[in-house]
Simulated scan of single mutants.
Amino acid sequence: MATYEKRGNTWRYRISTGKNPTTGKYEYISKSGFKRKSDAKHHAEMIERQLRTGEYISPSSHTFKQVADDWIKHYSNDAKISSVRVRHKAICHAVQRFGRYPIQSIKKHDYQSFVDDMTKEYSKNYVDSIVSSTNMIFKYAHEMKLIKTLPSDNIRRPKKKRTVEELEETEIHKKFLEKDELVEFLQVAKYNHSPQNSFEVFVTLAYTGMRAGELLALKWADIDFENNTISITKTYYNPNNNKKKYQILTPKTDSSIGKISVDPKIINLLKDYKVNVQDKWKDELYIDNNFVFTDNNGYPLVIKKLQLWIKAILKKTDINKNISTHSFRHTHCALLIEAGVHIKEIQERLRHKDINTTMNIYAKITNSYKKDASQKFSQLMENVSKELF
């Protein structure tokens, strides 16, 4: 029950919330400055109603940074270390903007302005990461009863218009290889590039569609030489590219775990590579942890080294594209599409959790497949065309 008292020309109310079990002292909610008793009573009744329904949020001085730090610790309990790293990087922008402000003081307008600024400055994918991570902080604050409403609710994401230059760049530098380009790349890797296992690395990426992290975590026990399959059960994590300080983690998602069939030629290639290359590296300095793709000391290759190999190989070709290790996964998908493989089979082979991910790669389909589709349509419509043209 609230009590009221007049102080000078204004009214004050006080509501008892009971005895604190920790301190043993009675605690109160109070507010002053009301011009009329009826105003104080109206406000007190609203607070009492919120107390009864559990909706009351006590005033708090918790800053956004304090809550963000608490959230990332909580998030780290269940998330993969790679995911924590991504989230930590993303929330730095929000901490920079809101860090010293009490989280209760951040309004929807403030957050919308922040999202607008991020959209102007960064790519869509990175802004997605920033916004989703910051939203998690606000949701955590709401669950901890530090804020009453979510400033992130119904935030508008302005569409970033691409310039003509960006559209042209996207068209010119597709991030996967056509079939003939893949052949050219692999020929250079095999005959005109010094690292002894670079050819095997890129062939395996291109012929399996594996992620680079999955490839580098691959062990010989994962390869079934009799049934021509590869089991994918783990991924390599090494953000600092220190060959001795790597981690082997569970895959990106549960759907990433799987067993894929592989061309027998690739299986035989790997078998020959093990005997004729890797086994010859083994001496007293070799750290043998059964990894497939290693340096000559037995440590798994680092992704940065693969990227350097790609650049070196591309310089010896006529290919003018911005290719990364992940490009070979897209190349594999595009060539499956060109070969006429059903979209559901492609999803299962690439282990995409959502078929929309697979569908989106259709937007990057190879030029040769487009030409083939046009030729097939022309053949189908040949008789009709004779009557029309």
Rank of each mutant, 00 (worst) to 15 (best):
T3N: 06
E5P: 04
T10E: 07
R12E: 06
Y13M: 01
P21W: 09
S32T: 15
F34M: 05
R36H: 12
K37D: 12
H43Q: 11
A44V: 02
E45T: 11
E45H: 11
M46V: 12
I47F: 03
E48F: 03
Q50E: 11
G54W: 10
G54A: 11
E55V: 07
S61Q: 08
T63P: 03
K65Y: 05
K65L: 05
K65R: 10
Q66W: 04
A68N: 02
A68D: 02
S76T: 04
A90T: 10
H93W: 04
H93G: 05
R97E: 14
K108G: 04
S113K: 12
S113C: 06
D117V: 11
M118D: 10
E121K: 15
N125V: 10
N125C: 08
N125S: 14
Y126R: 01
Y126F: 11
V127N: 03
I130H: 04
I130F: 05
I130P: 03
S133H: 02
N135C: 14
M136D: 06
H142M: 13
K148L: 11
L150K: 02
P158V: 08
T163R: 01
T170I: 11
H173N: 11
K175Q: 15
Y191T: 12
H193Q: 10
P195E: 13
P195A: 14
P195R: 08
Q196E: 14
E200Q: 13
T204E: 10
G213K: 01
K219C: 15
W220Q: 10
I223W: 10
D224Q: 13
F225L: 14
T229W: 05
I230N: 02
S231M: 15
I232P: 00
K234G: 01
T235H: 01
K245M: 00
Y246Q: 00
T250Y: 03
T253S: 09
I257G: 03
K259V: 15
D263F: 03
I266R: 03
V275F: 11
V277Q: 10
W281F: 08
K282T: 06
E284I: 05
L285M: 06
I287D: 00
F291W: 00
G298L: 01
A312E: 14
D318R: 15
I319Q: 12
I323L: 13
S324R: 15
F328Q: 01
A334W: 00
L336W: 05
I337H: 02
A339E: 12
G340V: 07
K344R: 14
I346G: 00
I346T: 03
L350I: 09
H352D: 00
K353E: 06
N360Y: 06
A363M: 10
N367E: 14
S368K: 14
Y369S: 14
K370A: 08
K371A: 07
K371H: 04
F377I: 13
E382S: 09
E382Q: 09
V384K: 07
S385N: 14
E387M: 12
F389K: 13
